[in-house]
C-alpha cells in the first residue's frame, strides 16, 4: 500500500516547485551552536519529515521557518531562509504576516481555553479573513472538516476546546492552523502525545493536507516518517546529515550516521 503511494508521489516529486530554501543557516542559543550550516530545499505539496536523535536541532530548525525563534531572547539565527523567493529574515518582514502564511502545530496539543468555534475562528478573525458571521461560520466548518474532526464536534461547537480528548485536541489545533489559509504547515512531533488510534487519524490527515500545503513534520518515529513523508531530512548534532527521498533514506542511506540511526544504533 505504501509502495503504491510512493510510486505515485515519486513521479510528482520532480515536478514540485521549491517552497522553502535555506542556505547556510546557523542557530545559536547563547554560546550553544544548535544548527550548523543547514542547506535544504523544501518542496511544495508534499510532506517533508525531519528525523534525528533528541536534541539534534529538529525543532530549532523548524522554528526558524516561521520565526518562532524570535520569541526566545537568547536565540540568534544566521544565514538565508527564503519562502517563495522572499527572505523571511529581511528587516521589512513582519513575523506576524509570515506566521499567517506558515502555520504551526505544536508537540503538545494546546487549544485555547475557549470554545471549539472560537479556537478555529480566532486566526481568521485577527487576519480579517471573514467579512461577516456567516463567512466565519463557513471558514470554521471548512477548517474543521479539513482537519477531519467536524463530525465529532459539529454538535458542540460551543463546548470548550480543552474538554476534548488528546487526539481531538490535536486535530482541533490542526484545524486552527489551517483556518488561516497558510501555505506551509509546520508540525513539531504532532503525535508524540497521542495514542496509536489518534496518531493514525492525524497521519491520515497529514496525507490529505499535502494536496494543498507544503507540510514539514518533525518526528521521533521513523515508522511515522516512512508512512507519511515523501522526503526526509536526517539531522545529527545540529548538522543536516542527509536529505532525500524518504524511500531512499530508509532503504539505501548514503551516510553511515543515517544508517546507524535508522537501524537503531544511535539515537
Amino acid at each position: 500500500m505504501y509502495d503504491a503511494d510512493h510510486n505515485r508521489t515519486e513521479s510528482r516529486v520532480s515536478q514540485n516547485e521549491i517552497k522553502i530554501s535555506s542556505r547556510n543557516v546557523q542557530v545559536y542559543y547563547g554560546d550553544n551552536h544548535a544548527i550548523k550550516d543547514v542547506d535544504v530545499d523544501i518542496e511544495d505539496r508534499l510532506v517533508t519529515a525531519f528525523i534525528g536523535p533528541s536534541g539534534c536541532g529538529k525543532s530549532t530548525f523548524l522554528r526558524c521557518l516561521n520565526r518562532m525563534n524570535d520569541t526566545i531572547p537568547i536565540c540568534r539565527v544566521e544565514g538565508d531562509i527564503h519562502i517563495d523567493g522572499e527572505d523571511i529574515y529581511d528587516k521589512r518582514v513582519d513575523p506576524v504576516q509570515l506566521r499567517a502564511k506558515v502555520g504551526m502545530v505544536f508537540q503538545k496539543p494546546n487549544p485555547f481555553p475557549k470554545s471549539i468555534y472560537d479556537n478555529v475562528a480566532y486566526g481568521p478573525k485577527i487576519h480579517g479573513l471573514a467579512k461577516n458571521k456567516s463567512e466565519l461560520d463557513d471558514i470554521v466548518e471548512r477548517a474543521l472538516k479539513r482537519a477531519a474532526i467536524w463530525d465529532e464536534v459539529k454538535d458542540r461547537l460551543d463546548a470548550s476546546g480543552t474538554g476534548l480528548s488528546g487526539g481531538q485536541q490535536q486535530r482541533l489545533c490542526i484545524a486552527r492552523a489551517v483556518a488561516t489559509e497558510p501555505e506551509v504547515l509546520l508540525m513539531d512531533e504532532p503525535c508524540s502525545a497521542l495514542d496509536p488510534i489518534a496518531t493514525g487519524q492525524v497521519e491520515e490527515l497529514i496525507d490529505e493536507l499535502k494536496q494543498n500545503y507544503s507540510v514539514v513534520i518533525v518526528t521521533h518515529s521513523m515508522q511515522q516518517a516512512a508512512r507519511v513523508s515523501q522526503k526526509t531530512a536526517f539531522f545529527h548534532l545540529g548538522n543536516l546529515v542527509e536529505y532525500g527521498e524518504t524511500e531512499k533514506i530508509f532503504t539505501n542511506p548514503q551516510d553511515s550516521r543515517t544508517e546507524s540511526y535508522i537501524t537503531g544504533r544511535i539515537g
Binding site: R99, V105, F106
Partner: peptide, 11 residues
C-alpha cells in the same frame, strides 16, 4: 503553550 499557540496562528 498558550502564547505559542497565539503567535503560531499569526497573532
Amino acid at each position: 503553550s498558550i502564547r505559542a499557540a497565539a503567535l503560531g496562528v499569526g497573532a
